[in-house]
Design a protein around this nucleic acid. Structure first.
Length: 262
DNA sequence: ATGGCTTATCAAATAAGA
């Protein structure tokens, strides 16, 4: 089974490209982030025609997460227990959706950005990650053999080599100790990055800013990850970051991240 | 060096991304 995660940065602007990607890479399950639309605007029919079941959560033009599966999509859940709220009035955002695909519970996660180190959004980001850790740790405590994948845009560069130049990120989010600790708390809870061993750095990224010719200059960030529970890790055979999808007209600023399980 | 692209939105500036 081939599983992928991709921040598509608007599904309506990218649907043809996503369909071509699914065909080219023969993807069985795709977790998408930043669909940037409401449920009624999501192009479900296009994916159903291609043989995929669809689950989407989107409330407005911000955020939005989805799952596509051609190997079954059962017990869909929107949000996770204890997921923090944001905004005025405070409400749950469309940043988490999951379903069971051929026995594996896969999550599509869009971790809050954080914006700046002084912004309240950073506290929201850290609370969101802490709540995810607590809830996900509970799943493994209750069922240690459960197969769970936490896939998505984490908006964190866990290592210095995960950004093109640490000096350029001095005083910025995504590389702060607090954010990195929040990421490692998930790892410590039993969720392993299944892609890095197959796509080691330095210089290996999943995101490149649209501005300043970042992509051709190879100035990127590794911020999209697929983390797997212990029972799922043992099934992983291969993984790759599809850099080709960042090329050309109409590309998302993120590249898809794929892995195969036996 | 200033957010220098890209997307969405009550459609022209603004918010958000990271």
């Amino acid at each position: 089974m081939r599983i992928a995660t991709w921040n598509v940065n608007s599904i309506r602007a990218r649907v043809d490209r996503v369909l071509a990607f699914l065909e080219r890479q023969q993807v069985d399950v795709l977790a998408m982030q930043e669909t940037k639309c409401r449920d009624d605007q999501f192009p479900s029919a296009r994916f159903e025609e291609a043989g995929y079941q669809v689950a989407h959560s989107g409330f407005n033009q911000w955020n939005g997460v989805a799952l596509l599966s051609r190997v079954g999509l059962e017990d869909v859940q929107v949000g996770f227990d204890g997921m923090p709220h944001w905004g005025e009035p405070a409400a749950a955002e469309a940043r988490a959706i999951s379903g069971v695909c051929d026995g594996v519970r896969l999550w599509s996660l869009y971790v809050p950005n954080g914006r700046t180190l002084e912004d309240p959004h950073l506290g929201y980001k850290l609370r969101w990650l802490a709540a995810l850790r607590d809830t996900a740790a509970g799943w493994l405590a209750a069922a240690p053999e459960s197969q769970v994948g936490l896939l998505g845009d984490w908006n964190i560069a866990p290592r210095d080599e995960d950004v093109w130049d640490m000096a350029a990120f001095a005083g910025k989010t995504h590389v702060s100790p607090a954010e990195r600790e929040a990421f490692h708390a998930l790892v410590d809870a039993g969720f392993t990055d299944v892609v890095r061993p197959h796509a080691p750095g330095p210089g290996v990224y999943t995101y490149w800013d649209y501005t300043q010719l970042s992509f051709p200059k190879r100035r990127g960030m590794r911020i999209d990850f697929a983390l797997a529970s212990p029972a799922l890790v043992t099934r992983v055979q291969h993984a790759v970051i599809d850099r080709e999808e960042r090329k050309g007209k109409g590309a998302s600023d993120h590249a898809p991240v794929l892995f195969d399980i036996a």
